[in-house]
Amino acid sequence: MKRAVLGLILTGVVVLTLYPFLNVVARSFSEEQAIQAGKVNLLPRGFNTTTYEVVMSDPVFWTNYRNTVVYTVVATAISIVLTTCFAYVLSKRHLKGRAPLVGIAVFTMFFNGGLIPNYVLVSGLGLRNTIWAVVLPNAISVFNLLVMKAFFEGLPTELEEAAAVDGLGTYGILWRIVLPLSKAVIATMVLFYAVFFWNSWFPAFLYLDDADLFPVTIYLRNLIAGSTGGSDISTPSDTALQIAANIQAVTIVLTALPIMLGYPFIQRYFVSGITLGAVKG
């Protein structure tokens, strides 16, 4: 009896979690008339890939998609370098000034400048309409920093000491001894940052005006923004709106696709990263 209730609840959780995805995927493969009639549920009605062809033949979509890839790669690379350097230094317990440095980083978790001063600053630095407006303002996540710091603190010190005796400097130790031992945590950090930057939309929304610079999340946001407009909802049979619904579904699927495909592989790294950060951080 108890088992049955438990099974029922967990089945409910699984169904409720998956249903919205499956519904959107089904819509993306359905023909307009079926969507209009509200017939699309879990399976596509009037299966076709025309909408995919329409979206994928839009050059702006591809430009924006490529932008997302470029932003993600550049931002992740910068983030990894900065986070690794800082975390390594913060893991050195003997270092004078270590505590204030940790404090400087951690304080920003609880207090930040806020939207307007950030906006004024990024605009004032002349970063608007450049990749740097998207990449730099979130270059270091303090949570990720603490995860990495905890990892470095857990490394045995003997290896580094031996390397120092052999005459290796800090840079040499970091590059040749520490980093090769840290592949797993670096991989985790790459995933944390890459997923964050792939999904990010708000800095681009704030600071980019030129459609050629938009990431794909802004492409999608501009598609769906029209549909909350209010004025154009009174006529359920409006064909233009239905095509938009079709195209929205396809764009949603294509935006989420790389994450969904990678998800089974990356998920466990995230879980171990989160737990490490929480336990040690």
Binding site: P20, F21, L220, I224, T228
Partner: peptide, 14 residues
């Protein structure tokens, strides 16, 4: 793991 834009899109579709 989904972008908030994707989540909003899904909500609107539903």
């Amino acid at each position: 793991f989904l972008s908030i834009v994707v989540v909003a899109g899904i909500v609107m579709q539903l």
